[in-house]
Computed example of a mutant assay.
Amino acid sequence: MSIREPAVAGSFYCDDPIDLADSVMQCIGEFVDAGVHAKALIVPHAGYIYSGPVAGAAYRLLANSCNDIDRVVILGPCHRIALQGLAVASYEAFSTPLGDISVDIPACQNLVDKGLVQYSNEAHQFEHSLEVQLPFLQGCLAKFTILPIVVGACSIDDVYTVINALNVEGTLFLISTDMSHFHTYQQANAIDNFNIVRMLNFDTDLTGEDACGSNVLNGFFKFCDHAKWKIRMVKYENSGDTAGDKEKVVGYASFIVY
């Protein structure tokens, strides 16, 4: 079996399985009935000491959705290479210290056959925006497959079309993005609060300055608006609130879409 081995275990999160499981559950805390069934989560992707509590606040809302989810489509920005379009990988599973997660290979191949995505193991090999979500999913869900998609330079419609093709019963969409980068604490709060309002309105003109996953968000929000989905913010903090100084911070926000 071809397996994508973890690239940021031991740096972004613990590489010891016992410590990692404990870290994930500390971030999630008590599971909460969200009052709705989640169709998607938007969560950050920094090291757990920085953004883990913000991500965990969204994951804990899967309590009344987890039994209905058998596949998670994860879309995140490409940080490591210059990627044109969207890319899946040919790996049969993605591994974390908590175990292996099977990839929905037929769905990947179907997207490639339709010309909606390309295969690129290079884009996935060291990409953290998808990987850091996997232990959280392993802490929340029992039996599921994943469909990881790295998103590079592309149009809104490129992302919209992929999401539309994958929107079937039992699928949870997981959108991985951080907010503003390297402003002062006060500046980051102002910028991020402004952009959170835009996100709550499903704006589709976000830029990389607003959120590193802007290409994913814009296409996703177009789909949400078309599908008449609803969104609710869960938690906002920045690295100045968690584990960093307040001179150059990164913003983190999480949302539930239902």
Rank of each mutant, 00 (worst) to 15 (best):
Gly170His: 10
Phe182Met: 14
Met179Val: 03
Tyr185Asp: 06
Ile156Cys: 05
Thr171Gly: 01
Asn164Trp: 09
Phe144Asn: 11
Leu147Tyr: 01
Lys143Leu: 11
Tyr160Met: 06
Asp157Asn: 12
Thr171Gln: 04
Ile191Thr: 10
Leu172Cys: 01
Ala188Thr: 01
Leu172Asp: 05
Lys143Met: 12
Asp192Leu: 08
Leu174Thr: 06
Val159His: 08
Asn189Ile: 12
Asp157Tyr: 10
Ile175His: 04
Tyr160Arg: 07
Glu169Met: 10
Gly170Gln: 09
Ile146Leu: 07
Ala190Glu: 12
Asp157Thr: 09
Leu166Lys: 03
Thr145Met: 14
Asn167Lys: 04
Val159Pro: 07
Ser155Thr: 14
Met179Ser: 00
Asp192Glu: 10
His181Thr: 01
Phe182Tyr: 15
Ala153Gly: 07
Leu147Ala: 02
Leu147Cys: 03
Leu172Gly: 04
Leu174Asp: 06
Thr145Tyr: 08
Leu147Ser: 06
Leu166Asp: 00
Ser176Pro: 05
Val168His: 12
Ala142Ile: 11
Cys154Leu: 12
His183Tyr: 14
Ile163Thr: 03
Thr145Asn: 13
Asn167Glu: 02
Gln187Cys: 01
Leu141Thr: 01
Thr161Asp: 11
Asn164Ile: 07
Ile175Leu: 15
Ile191Gly: 07
Tyr185His: 07
Asp178Ala: 08
Tyr185Leu: 05
Val162His: 03
Ala153Arg: 14
Thr171Ser: 05
Ile149Val: 15
Gly152Pro: 10
Leu141His: 05
Asp192Phe: 08
Ala142Gly: 13
Thr171Ile: 02
Leu147Asp: 03
Cys154His: 07
Ala165Cys: 02
Asn193Thr: 11
Asp178Arg: 03
Gly152Ser: 11
Gln187His: 00
Phe173Ala: 04
Ser176Met: 07
Pro148Leu: 15
Glu169Tyr: 08
Phe173Val: 03
Ser176Phe: 04
Thr145Ala: 14
Thr184Arg: 00
Val150Thr: 11
Val168Ala: 10
Asp157Glu: 11
Thr184Pro: 04
Ser155Gly: 10
Ile146Tyr: 02
Ala153Pro: 05
Ile191Lys: 10
Ser180Cys: 13
Ala165Asn: 04
Ile163Gly: 03
Leu172His: 02
Asn193Cys: 10
Tyr185Met: 06
His183Thr: 08
Asp158Gly: 08
His183Val: 04
Ala165Asp: 01
Asn193Val: 03
Glu169Val: 13
Gln186Gly: 09
Leu166Ala: 00
Ile163Gln: 06
Phe173Ile: 00
Tyr160Ile: 03
Thr184Ile: 04
Cys154Arg: 10
Met179Lys: 05
Tyr185Lys: 05
Ser180Ile: 05
Asp157Trp: 08
Gly170Cys: 08
Asp158Val: 08
Ile156Val: 09
Val159Ala: 11
Asp158Thr: 08
Thr171Trp: 00
Asn164Leu: 14
Glu169Thr: 12
Lys143Phe: 07
Thr161Ile: 05
Cys154Thr: 09
Val159Glu: 09
Ala188Ile: 03
Thr161Gly: 06
Asp192Gln: 09
Cys154Asn: 10
Ile191Phe: 15
Val159Leu: 11
Tyr185Pro: 01
Val150His: 00
Gly152Cys: 12
Gln186Asn: 13
Ser180His: 05
Leu174Arg: 02
Ala153Leu: 09
Val150Met: 10
Ile156Leu: 07
Asn189Arg: 11
Ile191Met: 12
